[in-house]
Nucleic acid binder design. Structure first.
Lengths: 225, 225
DNA sequence: GCAAAAGTGTTCTAGGTACACCCATGT
DNA sequence: ACATGGGTGTACCTAGAACACTTTTGC
Protein backbone atom coordinates (compact mmCIF):
# COMPACT_ATOMS: atom_id res chain seq x y z
CA UNK A 1 0.00 0.00 0.00
CA UNK A 2 1.78 3.10 -1.20
CA UNK A 3 1.10 6.72 -0.37
CA UNK A 4 -1.07 7.70 -3.32
CA UNK A 5 -3.54 4.92 -3.47
CA UNK A 6 -6.48 6.84 -4.95
CA UNK A 7 -6.24 6.93 -8.70
CA UNK A 8 -8.39 8.52 -11.36
CA UNK A 9 -8.41 8.70 -15.09
CA UNK A 10 -8.84 12.46 -14.97
CA UNK A 11 -7.51 14.94 -12.45
CA UNK A 12 -9.89 15.62 -9.54
CA UNK A 13 -9.93 18.67 -7.35
CA UNK A 14 -10.13 18.40 -3.59
CA UNK A 15 -13.40 19.60 -2.09
CA UNK A 16 -13.68 21.19 1.32
CA UNK A 17 -16.29 22.99 3.34
CA UNK A 18 -15.58 26.14 5.30
CA UNK A 19 -18.01 27.55 7.81
CA UNK A 20 -18.60 31.08 8.88
CA UNK A 21 -19.89 30.66 12.42
CA UNK A 22 -21.60 33.77 13.68
CA UNK A 23 -22.63 34.67 17.16
CA UNK A 24 -23.42 37.78 19.12
CA UNK A 25 -21.13 38.61 22.03
CA UNK A 26 -20.22 41.84 23.81
CA UNK A 27 -22.63 43.79 21.64
CA UNK A 28 -20.81 42.67 18.51
CA UNK A 29 -21.39 40.30 15.64
CA UNK A 30 -18.56 37.82 15.94
CA UNK A 31 -17.05 35.11 13.77
CA UNK A 32 -15.19 32.04 14.93
CA UNK A 33 -11.67 31.68 13.59
CA UNK A 34 -9.07 29.02 14.15
CA UNK A 35 -5.35 29.30 14.04
CA UNK A 36 -3.78 27.21 11.33
CA UNK A 37 -1.39 24.59 12.59
CA UNK A 38 0.27 23.84 9.28
CA UNK A 39 1.34 25.38 6.01
CA UNK A 40 0.20 27.22 4.06
CA UNK A 41 -0.66 30.24 6.19
CA UNK A 42 0.77 28.43 9.23
CA UNK A 43 -0.17 30.27 12.46
CA UNK A 44 -2.55 32.49 10.50
CA UNK A 45 -6.25 32.79 11.20
CA UNK A 46 -8.74 30.91 9.06
CA UNK A 47 -12.32 29.73 8.98
CA UNK A 48 -13.07 26.32 10.45
CA UNK A 49 -13.32 23.82 7.68
CA UNK A 50 -11.94 20.68 6.17
CA UNK A 51 -12.19 18.20 3.39
CA UNK A 52 -15.43 16.52 2.51
CA UNK A 53 -15.41 12.77 3.05
CA UNK A 54 -15.77 10.80 -0.14
CA UNK A 55 -19.13 9.43 0.99
CA UNK A 56 -20.15 12.37 3.09
CA UNK A 57 -22.92 14.79 2.23
CA UNK A 58 -21.80 18.42 1.95
CA UNK A 59 -24.06 19.65 4.70
CA UNK A 60 -23.02 16.71 6.84
CA UNK A 61 -19.38 17.70 6.38
CA UNK A 62 -20.17 21.23 7.48
CA UNK A 63 -22.05 19.96 10.52
CA UNK A 64 -19.12 17.72 11.37
CA UNK A 65 -16.69 20.64 11.19
CA UNK A 66 -18.99 22.70 13.35
CA UNK A 67 -19.15 19.90 15.90
CA UNK A 68 -15.43 19.27 15.84
CA UNK A 69 -14.44 22.90 16.19
CA UNK A 70 -17.03 24.10 18.64
CA UNK A 71 -18.80 21.09 20.07
CA UNK A 72 -22.01 22.71 18.94
CA UNK A 73 -24.84 20.79 17.29
CA UNK A 74 -28.37 21.53 16.27
CA UNK A 75 -27.89 25.09 15.12
CA UNK A 76 -28.91 26.89 11.97
CA UNK A 77 -26.76 26.05 8.97
CA UNK A 78 -27.14 27.24 5.40
CA UNK A 79 -25.10 26.82 2.25
CA UNK A 80 -23.58 30.13 1.26
CA UNK A 81 -21.61 29.87 -1.97
CA UNK A 82 -18.97 27.75 -3.62
CA UNK A 83 -15.55 29.26 -4.09
CA UNK A 84 -13.35 27.66 -6.66
CA UNK A 85 -10.72 30.01 -8.06
CA UNK A 86 -7.96 27.69 -9.26
CA UNK A 87 -5.27 29.51 -7.28
CA UNK A 88 -7.17 29.85 -4.03
CA UNK A 89 -5.06 27.16 -2.38
CA UNK A 90 -1.35 26.99 -3.23
CA UNK A 91 -1.12 23.24 -2.53
CA UNK A 92 -3.58 21.80 -4.98
CA UNK A 93 -6.88 22.67 -6.56
CA UNK A 94 -9.35 22.98 -3.71
CA UNK A 95 -12.96 23.91 -4.28
CA UNK A 96 -14.70 24.92 -1.11
CA UNK A 97 -18.39 24.86 -0.45
CA UNK A 98 -18.94 27.57 2.13
CA UNK A 99 -21.68 27.41 4.75
CA UNK A 100 -22.66 29.80 7.45
CA UNK A 101 -24.13 29.08 10.81
CA UNK A 102 -25.73 31.03 13.63
CA UNK A 103 -24.94 30.04 17.19
CA UNK A 104 -27.19 31.21 20.02
CA UNK A 105 -25.64 33.67 22.41
CA UNK A 106 -25.66 31.23 25.32
CA UNK A 107 -24.18 28.27 23.49
CA UNK A 108 -20.73 29.39 22.53
CA UNK A 109 -19.09 27.10 25.01
CA UNK A 110 -16.02 26.31 22.87
CA UNK A 111 -15.94 23.54 25.37
CA UNK A 112 -13.72 20.65 26.17
CA UNK A 113 -10.12 20.63 25.02
CA UNK A 114 -10.16 23.81 23.01
CA UNK A 115 -6.96 25.77 23.21
CA UNK A 116 -7.62 29.47 23.63
CA UNK A 117 -4.68 30.30 21.42
CA UNK A 118 -5.99 28.13 18.63
CA UNK A 119 -9.54 29.40 18.53
CA UNK A 120 -11.21 32.74 18.93
CA UNK A 121 -14.28 34.86 18.37
CA UNK A 122 -13.54 38.00 16.39
CA UNK A 123 -15.58 41.10 15.83
CA UNK A 124 -16.80 41.01 12.26
CA UNK A 125 -15.67 44.60 11.78
CA UNK A 126 -12.13 43.99 13.00
CA UNK A 127 -11.00 40.70 11.58
CA UNK A 128 -7.32 39.84 11.39
CA UNK A 129 -5.85 38.97 8.04
CA UNK A 130 -7.31 35.66 6.95
CA UNK A 131 -5.84 32.71 5.11
CA UNK A 132 -6.83 31.82 1.53
CA UNK A 133 -9.87 33.72 0.27
CA UNK A 134 -11.58 33.48 3.63
CA UNK A 135 -12.01 37.24 3.86
CA UNK A 136 -14.23 37.06 0.79
CA UNK A 137 -16.20 34.20 2.28
CA UNK A 138 -16.85 36.11 5.48
CA UNK A 139 -17.89 39.19 3.51
CA UNK A 140 -20.38 37.21 1.51
CA UNK A 141 -21.73 35.52 4.63
CA UNK A 142 -22.20 38.83 6.36
CA UNK A 143 -23.93 40.25 3.32
CA UNK A 144 -26.30 37.27 3.22
CA UNK A 145 -27.03 37.49 6.92
CA UNK A 146 -27.72 41.22 6.70
CA UNK A 147 -30.01 40.72 3.74
CA UNK A 148 -31.92 37.93 5.45
CA UNK A 149 -32.48 40.10 8.47
CA UNK A 150 -34.95 42.07 6.35
CA UNK A 151 -37.03 39.26 4.93
CA UNK A 152 -36.74 36.32 7.30
CA UNK A 153 -36.73 35.42 10.95
CA UNK A 154 -33.08 34.35 10.81
CA UNK A 155 -31.96 36.62 13.65
CA UNK A 156 -34.04 34.59 16.08
CA UNK A 157 -31.47 31.84 15.67
CA UNK A 158 -29.11 33.88 17.81
CA UNK A 159 -31.47 33.86 20.77
CA UNK A 160 -31.26 31.52 23.77
CA UNK A 161 -34.33 29.49 24.59
CA UNK A 162 -35.80 32.32 26.67
CA UNK A 163 -35.15 35.94 25.89
CA UNK A 164 -36.59 39.42 26.24
CA UNK A 165 -37.72 41.67 23.44
CA UNK A 166 -35.05 44.19 24.32
CA UNK A 167 -32.39 41.54 23.95
CA UNK A 168 -33.82 40.60 20.57
CA UNK A 169 -33.88 44.22 19.52
CA UNK A 170 -30.20 44.61 20.44
CA UNK A 171 -29.39 41.64 18.20
CA UNK A 172 -31.22 43.24 15.32
CA UNK A 173 -29.51 46.56 15.97
CA UNK A 174 -26.07 44.97 16.05
CA UNK A 175 -26.55 43.17 12.74
CA UNK A 176 -28.41 46.05 11.14
CA UNK A 177 -25.76 48.45 12.29
CA UNK A 178 -27.95 51.15 13.76
CA UNK A 179 -30.70 51.91 16.27
CA UNK A 180 -34.27 50.76 15.74
CA UNK A 181 -37.48 52.25 17.02
CA UNK A 182 -38.72 50.19 19.93
CA UNK A 183 -42.41 50.34 19.14
CA UNK A 184 -42.04 49.69 15.44
CA UNK A 185 -39.65 46.85 16.19
CA UNK A 186 -42.13 45.16 18.52
CA UNK A 187 -44.97 45.63 16.08
CA UNK A 188 -42.91 43.95 13.37
CA UNK A 189 -41.84 41.01 15.54
CA UNK A 190 -45.39 40.49 16.72
CA UNK A 191 -46.52 40.32 13.11
CA UNK A 192 -44.13 37.41 12.56
CA UNK A 193 -46.20 35.46 15.06
CA UNK A 194 -43.32 33.15 15.86
CA UNK A 195 -42.86 33.74 19.57
CA UNK A 196 -44.76 32.94 22.74
CA UNK A 197 -44.91 34.75 26.04
CA UNK A 198 -43.68 32.31 28.69
CA UNK A 199 -45.45 34.20 31.45
CA UNK A 200 -42.10 34.48 33.22
CA UNK A 201 -40.13 37.65 33.66
CA UNK A 202 -36.47 38.46 34.05
CA UNK A 203 -35.45 40.75 36.92
CA UNK A 204 -32.44 42.48 35.67
CA UNK A 205 -31.57 45.65 37.56
CA UNK A 206 -33.33 48.53 39.14
CA UNK A 207 -36.16 48.76 36.68
CA UNK A 208 -39.26 47.02 35.52
CA UNK A 209 -38.72 43.30 34.77
CA UNK A 210 -38.91 42.12 31.17
CA UNK A 211 -41.17 39.41 29.87
CA UNK A 212 -39.48 36.26 28.63
CA UNK A 213 -40.40 34.80 25.27
CA UNK A 214 -39.66 31.52 23.52
CA UNK A 215 -39.72 30.55 19.87
CA UNK A 216 -42.75 28.64 18.68
CA UNK A 217 -40.61 26.62 16.26
CA UNK A 218 -36.97 26.79 17.27
CA UNK A 219 -34.61 26.16 14.39
CA UNK A 220 -37.24 27.24 11.88
CA UNK A 221 -36.40 30.25 9.73
CA UNK A 222 -39.44 31.75 8.03
CA UNK A 223 -39.49 34.04 5.05
CA UNK A 224 -41.53 37.10 5.96
CA UNK A 225 -42.84 40.29 4.38
CA UNK B 1 1.27 5.82 -19.25
CA UNK B 2 -1.54 3.78 -17.77
CA UNK B 3 -5.19 4.60 -17.56
CA UNK B 4 -5.37 5.99 -14.05
CA UNK B 5 -2.54 8.40 -14.00
CA UNK B 6 -3.91 10.89 -11.48
CA UNK B 7 -3.14 9.79 -7.96
CA UNK B 8 -3.97 11.25 -4.59
CA UNK B 9 -3.28 10.40 -1.00
CA UNK B 10 -6.95 10.82 -0.16
CA UNK B 11 -10.00 10.10 -2.26
CA UNK B 12 -11.23 13.06 -4.32
CA UNK B 13 -14.70 13.61 -5.68
CA UNK B 14 -15.29 14.68 -9.24
CA UNK B 15 -16.63 18.21 -9.64
CA UNK B 16 -18.94 19.26 -12.43
CA UNK B 17 -21.04 22.25 -13.33
CA UNK B 18 -24.57 22.00 -14.61
CA UNK B 19 -26.41 24.93 -16.11
CA UNK B 20 -30.07 25.72 -16.17
CA UNK B 21 -30.40 27.79 -19.31
CA UNK B 22 -33.64 29.73 -19.40
CA UNK B 23 -35.25 31.53 -22.26
CA UNK B 24 -38.69 32.72 -23.24
CA UNK B 25 -40.25 31.17 -26.30
CA UNK B 26 -43.81 30.65 -27.47
CA UNK B 27 -45.14 32.46 -24.41
CA UNK B 28 -43.43 29.98 -22.12
CA UNK B 29 -40.44 29.91 -19.82
CA UNK B 30 -38.22 27.26 -21.30
CA UNK B 31 -35.16 25.32 -20.22
CA UNK B 32 -32.53 23.80 -22.45
CA UNK B 33 -32.04 20.06 -22.06
CA UNK B 34 -29.69 17.69 -23.79
CA UNK B 35 -30.09 14.05 -24.48
CA UNK B 36 -27.50 11.92 -22.74
CA UNK B 37 -25.35 9.90 -25.09
CA UNK B 38 -23.94 7.53 -22.51
CA UNK B 39 -24.75 5.71 -19.29
CA UNK B 40 -26.05 6.36 -16.78
CA UNK B 41 -29.42 7.65 -17.91
CA UNK B 42 -28.42 6.99 -21.53
CA UNK B 43 -30.91 8.63 -23.92
CA UNK B 44 -32.51 10.46 -21.02
CA UNK B 45 -32.79 14.24 -20.77
CA UNK B 46 -30.37 16.16 -18.62
CA UNK B 47 -29.05 19.63 -18.00
CA UNK B 48 -26.04 20.73 -20.01
CA UNK B 49 -22.95 20.36 -17.92
CA UNK B 50 -19.62 18.71 -17.53
CA UNK B 51 -16.57 18.33 -15.42
CA UNK B 52 -14.59 21.28 -14.24
CA UNK B 53 -11.09 21.44 -15.63
CA UNK B 54 -8.41 21.04 -12.99
CA UNK B 55 -7.18 24.58 -13.60
CA UNK B 56 -10.47 26.04 -14.67
CA UNK B 57 -12.51 28.50 -12.67
CA UNK B 58 -16.02 27.32 -11.81
CA UNK B 59 -17.75 30.15 -13.60
CA UNK B 60 -15.42 29.66 -16.53
CA UNK B 61 -16.45 26.02 -16.71
CA UNK B 62 -20.10 27.00 -16.75
CA UNK B 63 -19.47 29.56 -19.49
CA UNK B 64 -17.63 26.92 -21.48
CA UNK B 65 -20.53 24.49 -21.19
CA UNK B 66 -22.92 27.21 -22.23
CA UNK B 67 -20.76 28.00 -25.24
CA UNK B 68 -20.30 24.36 -26.20
CA UNK B 69 -23.97 23.45 -25.91
CA UNK B 70 -25.58 26.55 -27.35
CA UNK B 71 -22.87 28.63 -28.98
CA UNK B 72 -24.06 31.48 -26.80
CA UNK B 73 -21.69 33.86 -25.05
CA UNK B 74 -22.02 37.06 -23.11
CA UNK B 75 -25.26 36.28 -21.33
CA UNK B 76 -26.24 36.51 -17.69
CA UNK B 77 -24.85 33.72 -15.53
CA UNK B 78 -25.16 33.26 -11.80
CA UNK B 79 -24.11 30.55 -9.40
CA UNK B 80 -27.17 28.79 -8.03
CA UNK B 81 -26.28 26.12 -5.50
CA UNK B 82 -23.96 23.20 -5.03
CA UNK B 83 -25.48 19.74 -5.01
CA UNK B 84 -23.42 17.01 -3.45
CA UNK B 85 -25.51 14.11 -2.19
CA UNK B 86 -23.12 11.17 -2.22
CA UNK B 87 -25.45 9.00 -4.28
CA UNK B 88 -26.44 11.59 -6.84
CA UNK B 89 -24.29 9.96 -9.51
CA UNK B 90 -24.11 6.17 -9.60
CA UNK B 91 -20.64 6.13 -11.18
CA UNK B 92 -18.56 7.95 -8.65
CA UNK B 93 -18.92 10.79 -6.18
CA UNK B 94 -19.75 13.86 -8.23
CA UNK B 95 -20.35 17.22 -6.67
CA UNK B 96 -21.97 19.65 -9.05
CA UNK B 97 -21.89 23.41 -8.83
CA UNK B 98 -25.09 24.50 -10.52
CA UNK B 99 -25.41 27.78 -12.40
CA UNK B 100 -28.31 29.34 -14.18
CA UNK B 101 -28.32 31.57 -17.19
CA UNK B 102 -30.79 33.76 -19.05
CA UNK B 103 -30.66 33.83 -22.82
CA UNK B 104 -32.34 36.67 -24.71
CA UNK B 105 -35.34 35.70 -26.76
CA UNK B 106 -33.62 36.42 -30.07
CA UNK B 107 -30.38 34.59 -29.35
CA UNK B 108 -31.42 31.00 -28.97
CA UNK B 109 -29.81 29.99 -32.20
CA UNK B 110 -28.67 26.53 -31.05
CA UNK B 111 -26.50 27.09 -34.05
CA UNK B 112 -24.05 25.13 -36.06
CA UNK B 113 -23.93 21.38 -35.80
CA UNK B 114 -26.54 20.92 -33.13
CA UNK B 115 -28.62 17.82 -33.58
CA UNK B 116 -32.30 18.52 -32.98
CA UNK B 117 -32.74 15.12 -31.39
CA UNK B 118 -29.97 15.76 -28.93
CA UNK B 119 -31.02 19.16 -27.75
CA UNK B 120 -34.27 20.85 -26.97
CA UNK B 121 -36.07 23.69 -25.26
CA UNK B 122 -38.71 22.48 -22.82
CA UNK B 123 -41.51 24.30 -21.12
CA UNK B 124 -40.56 24.66 -17.47
CA UNK B 125 -44.00 23.42 -16.46
CA UNK B 126 -43.83 20.26 -18.56
CA UNK B 127 -40.37 18.85 -18.24
CA UNK B 128 -39.66 15.24 -19.10
CA UNK B 129 -38.12 13.05 -16.45
CA UNK B 130 -34.59 14.24 -15.84
CA UNK B 131 -31.36 12.40 -15.13
CA UNK B 132 -29.65 12.54 -11.74
CA UNK B 133 -31.07 15.20 -9.39
CA UNK B 134 -31.53 17.64 -12.25
CA UNK B 135 -35.21 18.09 -11.47
CA UNK B 136 -34.23 19.55 -8.11
CA UNK B 137 -31.70 21.82 -9.74
CA UNK B 138 -34.26 23.17 -12.18
CA UNK B 139 -36.75 23.71 -9.36
CA UNK B 140 -34.27 25.68 -7.37
CA UNK B 141 -33.28 27.73 -10.39
CA UNK B 142 -36.87 28.56 -11.17
CA UNK B 143 -37.48 29.51 -7.59
CA UNK B 144 -34.47 31.82 -7.63
CA UNK B 145 -35.50 33.39 -10.92
CA UNK B 146 -39.04 33.96 -9.70
CA UNK B 147 -37.79 35.52 -6.48
CA UNK B 148 -35.37 37.81 -8.32
CA UNK B 149 -38.17 39.02 -10.55
CA UNK B 150 -39.51 40.91 -7.53
CA UNK B 151 -36.37 42.63 -6.35
CA UNK B 152 -34.05 42.92 -9.35
CA UNK B 153 -34.00 43.77 -13.00
CA UNK B 154 -33.07 40.20 -13.94
CA UNK B 155 -35.98 39.75 -16.36
CA UNK B 156 -34.47 42.36 -18.65
CA UNK B 157 -31.79 39.79 -19.48
CA UNK B 158 -34.38 37.98 -21.58
CA UNK B 159 -34.91 40.96 -23.84
CA UNK B 160 -33.34 41.47 -27.26
CA UNK B 161 -31.40 44.67 -27.80
CA UNK B 162 -34.56 46.55 -28.80
CA UNK B 163 -37.94 45.71 -27.39
CA UNK B 164 -41.34 47.15 -26.60
CA UNK B 165 -42.86 47.57 -23.18
CA UNK B 166 -45.63 45.15 -24.06
CA UNK B 167 -43.08 42.51 -24.91
CA UNK B 168 -41.35 43.12 -21.60
CA UNK B 169 -44.63 42.91 -19.78
CA UNK B 170 -45.35 39.53 -21.39
CA UNK B 171 -42.01 38.25 -20.13
CA UNK B 172 -42.84 39.36 -16.61
CA UNK B 173 -46.28 37.80 -16.86
CA UNK B 174 -44.90 34.48 -18.07
CA UNK B 175 -42.37 34.21 -15.24
CA UNK B 176 -44.72 35.63 -12.66
CA UNK B 177 -47.44 33.29 -13.79
CA UNK B 178 -50.30 35.73 -14.09
CA UNK B 179 -51.51 38.97 -15.66
CA UNK B 180 -50.12 42.34 -14.62
CA UNK B 181 -51.74 45.75 -14.79
CA UNK B 182 -50.35 47.65 -17.74
CA UNK B 183 -50.14 51.07 -16.13
CA UNK B 184 -48.71 49.84 -12.87
CA UNK B 185 -46.19 47.74 -14.74
CA UNK B 186 -44.96 50.69 -16.76
CA UNK B 187 -44.76 52.87 -13.68
CA UNK B 188 -42.61 50.26 -11.96
CA UNK B 189 -40.29 49.75 -14.93
CA UNK B 190 -39.89 53.48 -15.37
CA UNK B 191 -38.86 53.73 -11.72
CA UNK B 192 -36.01 51.32 -12.39
CA UNK B 193 -34.58 53.94 -14.74
CA UNK B 194 -32.63 51.34 -16.66
CA UNK B 195 -34.06 51.76 -20.15
CA UNK B 196 -33.90 54.36 -22.88
CA UNK B 197 -36.37 55.23 -25.57
CA UNK B 198 -34.64 54.69 -28.92
CA UNK B 199 -37.00 57.04 -30.69
CA UNK B 200 -37.80 54.20 -33.08
CA UNK B 201 -41.08 52.34 -33.23
CA UNK B 202 -42.12 48.88 -34.26
CA UNK B 203 -45.01 48.55 -36.72
CA UNK B 204 -46.59 45.32 -35.83
CA UNK B 205 -50.13 44.91 -37.11
CA UNK B 206 -53.18 46.99 -37.56
CA UNK B 207 -52.74 49.17 -34.53
CA UNK B 208 -50.64 51.94 -33.14
CA UNK B 209 -46.87 51.23 -33.37
CA UNK B 210 -44.97 50.55 -30.16
CA UNK B 211 -41.92 52.46 -28.99
CA UNK B 212 -38.66 50.55 -28.92
CA UNK B 213 -36.47 50.68 -25.86
CA UNK B 214 -32.91 49.58 -25.10
CA UNK B 215 -31.16 48.81 -21.85
CA UNK B 216 -28.91 51.52 -20.48
CA UNK B 217 -26.47 48.90 -19.14
CA UNK B 218 -27.03 45.59 -20.91
CA UNK B 219 -25.87 42.64 -18.86
CA UNK B 220 -26.24 44.60 -15.64
CA UNK B 221 -28.72 43.24 -13.12
CA UNK B 222 -29.68 45.78 -10.48
CA UNK B 223 -31.22 45.10 -7.11
CA UNK B 224 -34.33 47.24 -6.80
CA UNK B 225 -37.03 48.08 -4.28
C1' DG C 1 -38.34 59.54 45.19
C1' DC C 2 -35.30 58.84 41.62
C1' DA C 3 -32.94 56.43 38.02
C1' DA C 4 -33.37 53.04 34.47
C1' DA C 5 -35.22 49.91 31.30
C1' DA C 6 -40.03 47.85 29.97
C1' DG C 7 -44.05 48.47 27.80
C1' DT C 8 -47.72 50.68 24.86
C1' DG C 9 -50.96 53.75 20.17
C1' DT C 10 -51.67 57.16 17.05
C1' DT C 11 -50.62 60.17 13.20
C1' DC C 12 -48.43 60.86 8.93
C1' DT C 13 -46.53 59.57 4.68
C1' DA C 14 -45.33 56.99 0.73
C1' DG C 15 -45.70 53.35 -2.20
C1' DG C 16 -48.75 49.84 -4.20
C1' DT C 17 -53.13 48.64 -6.17
C1' DA C 18 -57.29 49.28 -8.76
C1' DC C 19 -59.25 51.20 -12.52
C1' DA C 20 -61.09 53.47 -17.97
C1' DC C 21 -60.40 56.00 -21.80
C1' DC C 22 -58.10 57.98 -26.05
C1' DC C 23 -54.45 57.08 -29.82
C1' DA C 24 -52.37 55.43 -34.04
C1' DT C 25 -52.37 52.22 -37.26
C1' DG C 26 -53.93 48.37 -41.06
C1' DT C 27 -57.61 46.62 -43.47
C1' DA D 1 -65.27 52.93 -39.81
C1' DC D 2 -63.74 49.43 -37.10
C1' DA D 3 -60.74 46.30 -34.89
C1' DT D 4 -56.39 45.94 -32.47
C1' DG D 5 -52.92 46.64 -29.34
C1' DG D 6 -50.26 51.18 -27.55
C1' DG D 7 -50.20 54.60 -24.40
C1' DT D 8 -51.60 57.57 -20.28
C1' DG D 9 -53.37 59.63 -14.78
C1' DT D 10 -55.95 59.55 -10.51
C1' DA D 11 -58.16 57.96 -6.28
C1' DC D 12 -57.80 54.74 -2.71
C1' DC D 13 -55.68 52.00 0.65
C1' DT D 14 -52.33 49.79 3.35
C1' DA D 15 -47.87 49.22 5.36
C1' DG D 16 -43.87 51.54 7.24
C1' DA D 17 -41.94 55.62 9.74
C1' DA D 18 -41.96 59.05 13.29
C1' DC D 19 -42.90 60.01 17.75
C1' DA D 20 -43.74 60.52 23.97
C1' DC D 21 -45.42 59.00 28.00
C1' DT D 22 -46.62 55.56 31.79
C1' DT D 23 -45.09 51.35 34.41
C1' DT D 24 -42.36 48.66 37.44
C1' DT D 25 -38.65 47.75 39.76
C1' DG D 26 -33.86 48.42 42.85
C1' DC D 27 -31.54 51.43 45.49
Amino acid sequence: MHQFQYQYEYPHPAVSTDIVIFTIQDEQLKVLLIRRLSEPFKDGWALPGGFVGIDEDLEQAALRELQEETGITGVYLEQLYTFGRPERDPRERVITVAYYSLVPIDRLSLGAGSDARALGWFDCEALPELAFDHQKIVSKAKQRLTAKLDYSTIALQFMPSKFTLSELQRVYEIIHGGPLDKRNFRKRIQAYDCMEDTGEVRRNGSHRPARLYTLKSPGQVEIVK
